[in-house]
Design a protein around this nucleic acid. Structure first.
Length: 801
RNA sequence: GGGGAUGUGGUGGAACUGGUAGACACGCUUGGCUUAGAACCAAGUGCCGCAAGGCGUGGGGGUUCGACUCCCUCCAUCCCUACCA
């Protein structure tokens, strides 16, 4: 009678049906809108498991919301500029353009085979000039608003290839292709003043429905700190050094100043001091990445300059330290070895003074927590907080300092010296930069000659030299620029005459944004900044782009991030072919909760497939017969109905507020396991069939968001009335879920010693007496005196003996 | 170095508000079906113990009638660290 489950045929039939119905093209209508966005992929060639996981989560929620009658918008596009295209171009002699387009084509068909319900009519790719034209316009508007400036900044320079390298391309201080020792080089670059928005980026975190850990990471990254700017006069000179410190209470413990190797003063004295000049050269060999810098050995050199302590008049040495960042604060650190672990390490190494000025319950130095001031002249005995306040007042009086709020956040360098990116729309006239007019946009990225490797724009004479002393800017934008506003452009991606339109205000903000936890800081912070800046130039409404955020954990293989750069990927394609999209989606959602990392394991996929086969054989060939409820249900039937409605309630909560798909699936499995065998037989009673039908209908609908093909297929053959499963989330009946009995837990000294099925709402005395009648409980208590009993109504009783 | 997470059976995980630890699966064991295997079906499965019972949520300590859950401390692993995306 029944056929076996064939995922290939079913998925093809159902996907064709969706396409014919144009089911996932979204338009403005009267229902409540729901903009569900998953982070668009970099088109690296094939989908990896991280994508499958991310996009399945987005699709499950989109489908669930559609069933709940929301007007759902779920678009998809391509973060198409970036380094890998250039690398592939060099390795395979394919143009970045062709390589990217082929990858997009391939990945798009993979996405379609997974049955994701995207509105493909809004597809965009950041490498199309129809997209980046508007990015160039945004840059101009930002420039006009005073948010853009030029500044010298460090890059990793490969002296052999004569190119700038990304941090990723520097391995052990050497260029990954040339093997040459990398140098830190300073070049002019474009910056965007994200720091103008530092305060708002911090304060409006509060209004976001985001995971607390992500908000905390952003908060710490922005790093607002209250402290003091303190001036140290250089001995025998009119100049001075200015430091910022969050611990002015430790000022009497300062025993040296350390300046950055890139500090103008360091460069100045290196000019006629060979030792120092050698030291600075050595510092240039370090990698620019913060993590490497922090791990590197702390090195320093005495400049022989002395500064005067503003409160004690003491003369202190000025050192150059490789751990001092020029970009943070003033590029000068006041060294307090006794109360800062980095300064302590440095002072020990170079035999500098260590002076204790804070007393607290930390026994050993360095004592980094707040405490009580000692050895601090008239400030002795004050707390750190009070001491800081009084010391700042004193410094202000002496005109040697002031209170200051400092951010850790630095301005955003958006220049990249590469080919495959959005050209920065600037022309230099006699060396003066001028942003071009909107009518001359887009500045198109020049096509490459056939089979030529991608050369940076700076070496493309045809592109940059416009004659008459006019030169084009040769830097391209950081690809984070491209991904900082795509969420907004999706709403108007077909509009070639305006950047945004009435659809933009209808769909924004994004109601749910889903993506990897690795983007918790940079991408999300840049996008938030963009939204605020776009708001202030009148292009969008609202303060924040992403109302709610779901950060999925990494997909790991052998304990490490699966990534194209590490080459430890598992190809989803073979699994889609072997088991089908429904199984792959089910496996992904069942294996671990979305926010946790998922360690890939082969063996469980089989189990997911088996579950779908069980559903298939339970339902295939059965027909739904609509019946009125006219039955006196038996106890067994009542229990099935209770389980059925309770499961629906749980699944709804799991989808809606917990994003806990693994427990939702487990609950559906439990429900199906719970159906007694007699109910499934042809000779079952009408009442049994009624209960079975209810369980089947609920299960198919509950599982539809996760494994939509098989559910829609079975549902339409089971119900066969032309209605659509996608608009029909069922309702549970609280009265059916309610039971007048519960299982009482009986504990003795906190250990479970018995269980009892009893009526609800019994008072403590009755429950106590019933419990003490349980054989095992009686034996354990025996002659012991019951000191007290803890009673939790309709839950447990605990006897303390 | 800094910031953020995670740690529960052989494995993935559940326990949502401090109240039954191990739901639901994978794997394994036994049995059925089969010439045999696969698939499927049924039963069992945290550890120690014949049992009674004891022990168990990374290690150590604490709070509580009661702790996977709260506090302190230590350890291990993963992510981010501003030019991978």
């Amino acid at each position: 009678m029944s056929s076996t489950y064939n995922h290939k045929t079913i998925e093809e039939i159902i996907q064709n049906k969706w396409n014919e119905e144009n089911r996932y093209v979204s338009k403005i209508d009267k229902r409540e809108k729901y903009y569900c966005l998953s982070m668009f992929p970099y088109p690296s060639g094939k989908l990896h498991m991280g994508h499958v996981r991310n996009y399945t989560i987005g699709d499950v929620i989109s489908r669930y919301k559609r069933m709940k009658n929301f007007n759902v918008f779920q678009p998809m596009g391509w973060d198409a500029f970036g380094l890998p295209a250039e690398n592939a171009a060099i390795a395979n002699r394919v143009s970045p353009d062709d390589w990217t387009n082929q990858n997009i084509e391939n990945m798009k068909s993979q996405l379609q085979s997974l049955g994701f319900s995207y509105d493909w009519s809004k597809e965009l790719r950041t490498c199309d000039s129809s997209y980046y034209k508007w990015e160039q316009l945004i840059f101009k508007k930002f420039y006009d608003a005073g948010l853009v400036y030029r500044k010298k900044s460090m890059v990793n320079w490969d002296p052999e290839d004569k190119t700038v390298l990304a941090n990723e391309q520097v391995i052990d201080g050497k260029g990954w292709r040339s093997g040459a020792q990398i140098e830190i080089k300073e070049i002019d670059q474009w910056f965007i003043k994200i720091t103008d928005y530092a305060d708002e980026l911090l304060s409006s975190l509060e209004e976001l429905d985001w995971p607390e850990n992500v908000k905390l990471m952003q908060k710490n990254w922005i790093g607002k700190s209250y402290g003091a700017e303190i001036e140290y006069k250089i001995d025998a000179s009119k100049d001075s050094l200015i430091t910022f410190s969050t611990r002015p209470d430790t000022i009497f413990g300062v025993s040296f100043l350390a300046i950055s190797p890139n500090h103008p003063l360091a460069i100045k004295i290196s000019k006629d001091n060979e030792k120092i000049s050698n030291f600075l050269d050595k510092c240039k060999e370090a990698k620019a990445a913060e993590a490497d810098m922090a791990k590197a050995e702390k090195l320093g050199i005495d400049t022989n300059l002395r500064v005067i302590h503003p409160l004690t008049g003491e003369k202190l040495p000025v050192w150059i330290g490789n751990f001092v960042l020029l970009d943070y604060g003033t590029g000068v650190v006041m060294g307090v070895p006794a109360h800062d672990s980095r300064d302590y390490e440095f002072a020990k190494k170079y035999n500098l003074n260590i002076k204790e000025v804070i007393q607290n319950n930390e026994e050993e130095l360095p004592r980094t927590e707040n405490g009580i001031l000692i050895n601090s002249d008239k400030f002795n005995g004050l707390s750190s907080e009070e001491g800081s306040k009084k010391i700042i007042e004193e410094l202000v009086k002496l005109k040697s300092g002031k209170q200051l709020i400092q951010f850790r956040l630095r301005d955003w360098g958006v220049s990249r010296q590469r080919y495959w990116g959005c050209p920065i729309p600037v022309i230099y006239e006699n060396g003066d930069p001028k942003v071009i007019n909107e009518k001359d946009m887009p500045v198109e990225l020049p096509k490459l000659k056939k089979n030529s490797p991608p050369i940076p724009l700076s070496q493309n004479e045809d592109f940059i030299n416009l004659g008459n002393n006019l030169f084009r800017e040769s830097d391209t934008f950081d690809t984070f620029m491209d991904s900082s506003w795509y969420y907004a452009r999706f709403t108007s991606s077909n509009n070639n005459s305006e950047i945004f339109d009435e659809n933009t205000n209808y769909w924004l903000p994004v109601d749910l944004y889903i993506g990897g936890i690795e983007h918790a800081i940079l991408h999300l912070l840049y996008s938030r900044f963009f939204h605020k800046a776009l708001r202030d130039i009148g292009l969008v409404e609202g303060n924040e782009p992403f109302k709610r955020l779901l950060t999925q954990g990494m997909v790991l293989k052998d304990g490490a991030k699966m990534s194209k750069s590490k080459g430890n990927t598992v190809d989803p394609q073979s699994y889609i072919e072997k088991y089908g999209a429904d199984t792959v989606r089910l496996y992904m959602m069942f294996t671990s909760p979305p926010e946790q990392s998922l360690e890939w394991s082969e063996s469980s996929v089989e189990g997911a497939s088996r579950f779908l086969k069980r559903i298939w054989s339970l339902i295939e060939g059965k027909k739904y017969i609509k019946q009125d409820i006219k039955f006196e249900f038996s106890k067994e039937e009542i229990e099935l109905r209770r389980k059925c409605h309770a499961t629906l309630k749980k699944v709804e909560n799991d989808y809606e507020s917990r994003f806990s798909f693994n427990t939702a699936i487990a609950a559906i499995m439990e429900l199906l396991n719970f159906i007694p065998d007699e109910f499934k037989k042809d000779n079952a009673t009408d009442a049994q069939k009624f209960c079975l039908n209810e369980a089947i209908l609920f299960s198919l609908k509950m599982l539809f968001p996760i494994s939509p093909h098989i559910c829609e297929y079975l549902w339409s053959s089971f119900v066969n009335d032309g209605s659509c499963i996608e608009s029909s989330w069922p309702e549970y009946d609280e009265a059916i879920i309610e039971s007048d009995e519960f299982e009482l837990i009986i504990q003795v000294n906190g250990k479970v010693r018995g269980k009892l099925n009893i009526s609800k709402n019994l008072d403590e005395e009755t429950v106590k007496n019933l419990s003490l009648g349980v054989e095992n409980v009686k034996n354990i208590i025996a002659d012991s005196e019951i000191k007290k009993a803890i009673f939790v109504k309709d839950k447990l009783i605990n006897f303390v003996i």
